[in-house]
């Protein structure tokens, strides 16, 4: 059985598709592609699909991955082309290859966060952020895996890699723990900041730039 991993983008209109919807959507796309996919047995056969990390609703990304199995030998290049022929704008396969890493290798993700506000310009946003981030601890509400509400200090969790202003946007590059062990959504930090800065007219765009493995290589 040939396991194949496709790396794809999720940008533009398709970024508003939830993770659950993406799975169902991809099932149909795979059927349209007519690729020889391995299906489950039973009354409701569906493809075995694995996504490395769910992407939050509204986030964009160029590094999403999806794994499935083929029942015939087909070159990854053909898999890529056949899928791209049936995928809508914004969902594009950039590469297809047998998996290099295992999902358990993932330890972190990098994100670009763009914040815009009608009432505050980008430098005001940045100075607000500096005040916000200078606090010793940032206690956020989070739900643990058992859906229980917990409080965590997220200050040590996120790494602010860079921050800058461009046009009227305040841009943050953040590294956050990802994977099976620890998983932190950058929205945790962003929402807290927005609340702290007392803005209500903000537009926030978040893009995942990298999925990182324990050896610091890109997840492939």
């Amino acid at each position: 059985m040939n396991k194949i991993r496709v790396q794809f983008t999720k940008v533009g209109r398709v970024s508003y598709m939830s993770h659950l919807d993406l799975n169902r959507f991809m099932q149909r796309a795979l059927r349209r592609s007519n690729l020889p996919i391995k299906y489950t047995e039973g009354f409701n056969p569906h493809a075995y699909l694995t996504f490395a990390l769910p992407l939050s609703l509204g986030f964009e990304s160029k590094v999403e991955t999806m794994d499935f199995k083929l029942t015939e030998d087909i070159s990854p290049e053909i898999v890529k082309d056949r899928l791209n022929a049936v995928l809508p704008d914004g969902l594009k396969v950039v590469s297809a290859a047998p998996p290099v890493h295992s999902n358990t290798d993932i330890i972190a993700s990098e994100y670009t966060v763009r914040i815009k506000s009608k009432s505050l310009n980008s430098s005001e946003l940045e100075s607000k952020f500096d005040v916000f981030y200078s606090q010793d601890e940032l206690i956020a509400e989070k739900f643990n895996k058992k859906k229980k509400q917990i409080f965590v200090d997220i200050k040590p969790v996120f790494e602010i890699m860079t921050k800058y202003e461009i046009n009227d946007e305040f841009v943050l590059k953040i590294k956050a723990p990802s994977g099976n062990e620890k998983n932190y959504n950058p929205n945790l930090l962003v929402d807290m900041f927005i609340k702290h800065a007392e803005i209500s007219d903000e537009t926030v765009k978040i893009e995942r730039n990298r999925i990182i493995c324990s050896d610091n290589s890109d997840f492939l």
Binding site: R13, V14, Y16, M17, S18, D21, A29, R32, P88, T203
Partner: peptide, 20 residues
């Protein structure tokens, strides 16, 4: 797009589906 994420099931309001 600036208001989409504040709504339930935002994919209903943006189009772009295959077959459109």
């Amino acid at each position: 797009e600036s208001i989409l994420l504040k709504a339930q099931k935002p994919a209903r309001y943006i189009g772009g589906e295959p077959g459109a």
